[in-house]
Amino acid sequence: MLKVSDTAAEKAKEILKAEGKEGWGLRIFVHGSGCCGPSYGMDIDEKASEGDETVEKNGLKVFVDKEAYASLGEKEIDYIKTEQGEGFVINGGEAPSCSSGCSSCG
């Protein structure tokens, strides 16, 4: 089941409040796929859509469409801050296996 870190929940609530959208939530969706698996997108949304899974953490709601929820498994949404920048990340699970030799995988 998808998890949300305390740090990610608090940062998302802070962002939603700054946008004047308290009570809204985050939406996670599949944003394309490559030889190494799906890429994910994130947005804000007022409410769940029909068929969504909803994950809650510390008062934050995360809406996930069925396609994304199935592929996320035991991963965790976190928020990181480093010298290179800051943002939400999805951690955990096994790294994808890239054996096709495509040029888009490093």
Rank of each mutant, 00 (worst) to 15 (best):
A12Q: 05
E10I: 13
G37H: 11
E53C: 00
Q84D: 14
F63Q: 03
E56S: 09
E67N: 09
F29E: 14
S99F: 04
N58L: 15
S99W: 02
S104N: 00
I28Y: 05
T82A: 03
D45M: 09
K57E: 11
K66D: 10
K21M: 15
S97E: 11
G101N: 08
G101Y: 10
A8H: 03
Q84T: 12
E56I: 02
A95K: 01
T54S: 01
D78F: 02
N91I: 11
C102H: 03
D52T: 00
S103M: 02
G93L: 02
C35L: 13
E83N: 15
C102M: 02
P38I: 06
G34M: 14
S103T: 02
S100C: 12
R27D: 07
G92L: 04
S103R: 05
C36V: 15
K61I: 01
S103N: 00
S71K: 14
V4F: 04
C36T: 15
G85I: 09
E46M: 09
K11P: 01
G85C: 03
S71V: 06
E10W: 12
E86S: 12
I15F: 12
A12C: 09
G73C: 07
M42S: 05
K3A: 15
D45Y: 04
E10M: 12
H31I: 05
G101Q: 11
D43S: 12
S100L: 13
G85A: 09
E19H: 11
I15N: 06
F29P: 10
A8S: 01
L16N: 01
S49R: 04
A70I: 09
E74L: 09
A8M: 06
F88G: 05
E22D: 13
S104W: 00
C35E: 15
V30D: 04
I80S: 07
Y69D: 09
P96N: 12
E46N: 10
C35S: 14
E14I: 11
L2K: 02
S99N: 05
S100E: 11
K47M: 03
T82G: 05
D6I: 15
D6E: 15
S100W: 09
K3V: 03
A48M: 04
T7A: 11
G101F: 08
G32C: 01
A95Q: 04
L72E: 08
D45R: 08
D6N: 15
I28R: 05
A9M: 09
G92P: 07
E83K: 15
G32S: 00
K17F: 06
G85F: 11
D6V: 15
E10D: 14
Q84L: 14
K13A: 15
S71N: 13
K61L: 04
P96H: 12
E74I: 09
G106P: 11
I44S: 06
K61E: 10
Y40P: 03
D65I: 00
G25L: 11
V62F: 02
A70T: 15
G23Y: 12
A48N: 00
E83C: 13
G85N: 08
V30H: 06
S33M: 14
F63P: 01
D6T: 15
G59I: 08
V62M: 08
L72C: 04
D43K: 07
E46R: 08
G37S: 07
F88K: 12
D52W: 01
A68H: 12
I28E: 06
